[in-house]
Every structure is written in structure tokens, then in C-alpha cells.
Computed example of a mutant assay.
Amino acid sequence: MPYEVQGVIARGKGQDVSVETVLVPDPGPGEAVVAVKACGVCHTDLHYREGGINDDFPFLLGHEAAGVVEAVGEGVTEVAPGDYVILNWRAVCGNCRACLRGRPWYCFATHNATQKMTLKDGTELSPALGIGAFIEKTLVAAGQCTKVSAEAPPEVAGLLGCGVMAGLGAALNTGNVSRGDTVAVIGCGGVGDAAVLGASLAGAVKIIAVDVDDRKLAWARDFGATDVVNAGEQDPVAAIRALTGGFGADVVIEAVGRPETYKQAFYARDLAGVVVLVGVPTPAMELELPLLDVFGRGGALKSSWYGDCLPSRDFPMLIDLFLQGRLPLDKFVSETISLGQVEEAFARMHRGEVLRSVVTL
């Protein structure tokens, strides 16, 4: 018998979301049903509602979540009922060319649940990032469940499911920030501040936070930024160079996802430095750079997919650091809300008033 639960639905482009009854099937082979305990309100969910990802409406929103496994299907060995898990949107297959070369964080065959969750009239739902977690219970592929210590509160643990992991991983995994490096982070929302935190954790000697909002710059200082630059008041490239002895930063992390801020990142790095793009652009955006500058400056231009994380490796380790008091993930939680307050949370996020609103169930 399917589970009958309440979930947050986006029915059409730009329409306010609604809380509706959703039918969640019993898990089939390789699937799990998870009772969601908390789910962060991520900007990607707003992108879905605005039609910025695709037009497969209606969407079941939410993806940055933690919960408890309630049931598993045939052949599932990764998790069992009662396990406390963080949901991830890149279930590693283990068999594709990336996995077989020992690079599972690049898995090219990640997968989701095979069955569909539906509305009561049978309309199939498209779950955000293959998860759909603004809901009391959700159906996912078992590989999308990563077991972690139940001592971590779900409103904190769930944040590793997307934005915070993306930022931490952009610094730690993609950018390979190490002791003594200088780092600049352009864009200081949730992902950018997580990159600041990651750079601090890695031992960067100077971390420069760049934004146009002084409130966000204050948040960045709280996560470990040593210097801040208001890009609305001064040229960020010149400011970053001035703060790094005229050379530019060793690693520049672009957490906005726009051509103009990417160019700033490109020219704000030192020779042979690294640019990491973790901000998500829209399909229409294009970038133009002089090819001679790309050649002459050397270094590396990287894109960070989900912080190049491997959930089975990174989630438990980061939760352990949180429990040891070494990784203040709780600072990202601006407020906790109910399912019926997601639309209001979108508005506050759009205005830059919160780092993360978190739905608790």
C-alpha cells in the first residue's frame, strides 16, 4: 500500500508552491523510503519553480535533507530500516568509466528511484534533483542514502546534502586548498560561506570574501574570512590583488555563476592559480575570454560538481568534525519552518535575508 503524505508541489513556472497530498509507493528493488526529518531551502529549488532547470512540472521540491530509513526494497544492502541518513543526489553506480578508474565522485551513471511518486489523481511528480524532500516521506534510490551519526541534529546534517557540501568541497576537493594558500571567494551566500569555511578548515592563511551585500560579508567573517571586499564599492580584482601582495589569490572560488563574476575570478588569481566555478549559471549565459590570457596565465580552470564529493567518504567525516566542535555547520541555519512556509522562505532567500531556512518535520 502506498504512503499518503503531505509534500510541497510546484505546479507551474513562477506559480506559488502548494502543500498537497502525495502518494509514495512501497520501495521496489534498490529503493528506500525515508521519513524526512529536516530539509534545507536551497536556491536550486527556486530554480525548479521558476523553470530554470527544466519544464517537467509538477515538481516535488526539496533535496537537502536528513531522515530515517523506514523501508527498503529487494536487494538493498547499503542501508536498513532505522538508519539515520543524509540524502544525496549522486548515487554512485560503481561500474561506469569514472568509477572503474577510481574517480567515483565523477560517476557518469548516477541514478534515482525507478518508481514515481504521484498526486492523488495519478499525476507523476518530478522530484527535485531526484530526491523531492519537502515531504513527510520520500522514495529514493538506496544509494542516495548515506548513513551518519544520529547525534547530529537533522536540520544541521541535511545541509550537507547540497549547498554546504558544494561549498566545502569546492575548497577542499576541487580547489585543493592547503596550508598557507591565499583564497578569494566571490559570492557569500550559503555556498560561498561554506567555501570560506572549507578554506579556513584547510589552513588558508588569507581568505578574502567578496560580495555586494555588507550583511553577507559579515556572515563570511563569521565563517573565517580574514578580509572582505564590497564589490559594489570597489573593483574586486584590484582589491584582491592589493590584499595578496599584488599577485592575486592562489585559489579563487566563484560561487555566483555569472560571466562577469567568473571574469573577476579569472583575473583575480595568481599566475598558475586555480579558478573553481561552483555557482550555477543559467543555460543562456556565455563566457568570452582572450585565449592568449587563458594560455598565458596557466593554472587550472575547474568546475565543481557537488563539491566533487563522495558522500560515503565525506558526509560521515564532516558530521564527525561537527560533533567534535571543529565544523560549525549549525551557523548556516537561519531559521526553522514548516512545509507551509516554503514560499515565504523563497522570498527571504531571494532578498538575501537568510543563509538557510530549514523545513523541520
Rank of each mutant, 00 (worst) to 15 (best):
W219P: 08
L321H: 11
A209I: 00
P316M: 01
D227H: 15
R258W: 08
K302I: 04
V251W: 12
L287H: 04
A202Q: 06
P236I: 03
P311T: 03
L271Q: 10
S304P: 06
D314V: 08
D270F: 00
D193H: 13
F247T: 14
V251H: 06
V276C: 08
S304N: 15
D320W: 01
L301F: 15
E254V: 08
L197M: 14
R241D: 00
E260K: 07
P236Q: 01
L301W: 04
A199M: 09
F315P: 01
R215C: 01
E260S: 12
A199N: 06
E233T: 01
V278W: 11
D211L: 02
I253Y: 11
P316H: 01
V252Q: 13
G248T: 00
K263E: 11
V278F: 08
D213Q: 06
S304K: 07
V251F: 11
S200R: 15
S312L: 08
D270P: 00
G299L: 05
G198P: 03
A231R: 01
R313L: 13
A249I: 11
A239Y: 04
T261E: 03
A202S: 06
V252D: 13
A238C: 12
T244M: 08
R221Q: 13
A220K: 09
V256I: 12
R269I: 06
P290M: 07
Q324H: 11
G298E: 11
G245D: 03
V228L: 05
S200P: 05
Q264S: 14
V205S: 03
K302F: 02
G246W: 11
G279H: 10
G299W: 12
V294Y: 10
L310N: 11
G299A: 09
L217S: 02
E233R: 15
A242H: 14
A268I: 02
A249S: 08
T226E: 13
L291M: 12
R241C: 05
G203D: 05
K206Y: 00
L292S: 09
F266R: 04
L271D: 11
M317K: 10
I207W: 00
R241M: 14
L318Q: 03
A255N: 10
V228T: 15
E254H: 01
N230K: 13
R326K: 15
E233Y: 02
A272D: 15
P290W: 03
V280G: 04
D193G: 10
A268V: 03
D308V: 10
A202E: 00
A202G: 07
D320H: 07
I319F: 03
P283T: 03
F295K: 01
L301D: 04
A231G: 05
R258D: 11
A202N: 13
G246S: 07
V276N: 14
A218P: 08
D213Y: 02
A265Q: 09
G307E: 01
V196H: 00
I240N: 09
V237R: 14
I240K: 12
G307W: 00
E254Y: 12
E286S: 14
